[in-house]
Amino acid sequence: MICIDIEKKIKTYQGQQALKVSGDFAAGSIVKINGPSGAGKTTFLKIVAGFIQPERGNIIVNDRVWLDTALKISLSPKKRMAGFVFQDYALFPNMTVKEHLEYATADNEWINHLLKIGKLETLTTHKPQYLSGGQQQRLAILRALATKPQLLLMDEPFSALDPENKTALINELKLVFNKLGTTVFMVSHNPQELEELAAGLGKSSTLFINN
């Protein structure tokens, strides 16, 4: 179970607003995050990952306290180890495809499995600048999964993929999520993507963010 109750002041074009999000989410479920542009969806994901500190709140992930502002507890992103797929991919320009995964894990079997899922087996020695947008995005997803995270936070993770590749990858990802018991928080402006990912996984919920 993942329990979240946070409050953070954010600056918007309408001035300062409060981002308030609360909810309990079943472990292993898909949480579809909706909301208008600028509502704070990315900020919310970054708060959960530990990159941004909220003014007030609690985050408990599978009985472990990640954040409790009242008790002044806030685990560092390093300790939370939430998988994070960034909107800008945040790939390391100095590392090849394989080095990205080797940086995250020493499990070679898992690395090979991820490369197969992402159809990047033939591109292992390529650096990000030699990859297409879709390949870069797939690598960003694979890197986030390399640590087998309990919680995966994805910010527009399929925006650069063509429909065929997207469906194939989503089907593979569902198998991985089931196997790892990963809880997924996903922001997308494409409702079809959200439904496609949630379909067949049993547990899913929707979180609407609007400050």
Partner: peptide, 26 residues
């Protein structure tokens, strides 16, 4: 981009590892 460091931290890496393996080479 600040997201490079954040990506490294989310993989369980320390500030030192991030500096040596991600920031410095770039």
């Amino acid at each position: 981009p600040v997201s490079l460091s954040q990506a490294s931290y989310s993989l369980g890496k320390s500030r030192w590892q991030t500096f040596i393996r991600v920031l410095l080479p770039n």
